[in-house]
Nucleic acid binder design. Structure first.
Lengths: 199, 199
DNA sequence: GTCTATAAAGAGATAGAC
DNA sequence: GTCTATCTCTTTATAGAC
């Protein structure tokens, strides 16, 4: 959550993400938001159009952020395996740095109206396309196994990475980078193409 | 969801799990539950004490079920690696067969009152102890890597398995057993202890 | 075991002053 | 940009008849 100096709209969005994640979107009331911001209920409506708008913006922002983070991380790098490793690191780091927003996007999507939900899902599909492309390149370069279709490589990877938001706590046993190292190690070893023969 | 013949209390629990999972606990109203059951709102209270009771029972049931499923699956088997494989299969199968309850337990826990939440968390810890024990045995038998502490083996495994409830759909591309095979393959390859040298 | 009727509280959002 | 006051609707749960 951002400090007092920042514009109220931005503080409201961060605060909403925290409360939505901790208590759920439907269970979080405008009264709680107002109290935590230190204003009256009605004052919220100067900064937002509705409670649902907050949820929509949280979802979109988390997806824009992680897409940018991964795009930039793989950026100029050409080595296909290295690109997979950098993607994993950037995904985990972005997800954990932006934990409240990302978790809210992943768990409260169902609370959005159909139209807006579709917009968020479309954005998420775009991100998954980026991920799948990086995996497909590594597969084509024969550094990842060809025993599994790329869609299954993607499902396996996102399974392994995303569940982290449910147990990760800042200041816990593992730092974001340690989490990334652990998951990267398991995944890469699990799906890398090895030449098993001797010679 | 169970058919009409079954006692109403049980049908109510199954129905609640479906609605809680689809729309969230807080967003699901007693009106919707009553309508879907085909009775009046007030009639619900003959079968339940409160809406929160339903959530509590759903959470407990899903955990009792998965604990039993995994216990029985590894049952008499002694081979440590085989036990890990059987655990993965039973976990995935139980989670997907009981999808609504399991998903509700995993995502709506925060809606329970502190006391009941603590009870559910204690049950979940028990299950995780079972999982960790099976992994530790395999590690001691040198069939799983010793490079990672058993706690991290557990985090990695549950990450890989649990996220499945967010995308699995009955009748989709993959059957529960195919999902289990995919995840088992990635995990076992990822954490198995290999002798890399030749000879 | 299910009904009609209603209580009591809390929700999101708006009007209009300052 | 924030306030007080309020509107309107929905919520969970109960009372008591059948």
């Amino acid at each position: 959550m951002k400090p007092d100096g920042v514009v109220t709209a931005e503080r409201l969005l961060d605060l909403a993400a925290t409360l939505f994640w901790e208590n759920g979107y439907a269970a979080t009331t405008t009264r709680e938001l107002a109290e935590a911001l230190g204003v009256q209920k009605a004052s919220l409506y100067y900064h937002m159009a509705s409670k649902e708008d907050l949820l929509y913006e949280i979802c979109m922002e988390s997806l824009v952020n992680i897409h940018e983070a991964v795009s930039q991380a793989v950026g100029e790098v050409r080595d296909p395996l290295r690109r997979v490793q950098l993607m994993i690191r950037a995904h985990v780091r972005s997800m954990l740095e932006d934990r409240e927003k990302h978790a809210t996007m992943l768990t409260e999507l169902k609370a959005l109206s159909p139209g807006r939900r579709a917009e968020v899902v479309a954005r998420r599909d775009e991100y998954e396309t980026l991920v799948r492309g990086i995996l497909a390149d590594a597969q084509d370069a024969t550094v990842l196994t060809s025993e599994l279709p790329v869609k299954q490589l993607e499902l396996g990877l996102l399974n392994l990475l995303n569940w982290t938001i449910f147990w990760y706590r800042p200041g816990g046993d593992l730092s974001p980078d340690e989490v990334a190292s652990l998951l990267e190690r398991i995944y890469i070893t699990g799906v890398r193409r090895f030449w098993r023969g001797c010679g």
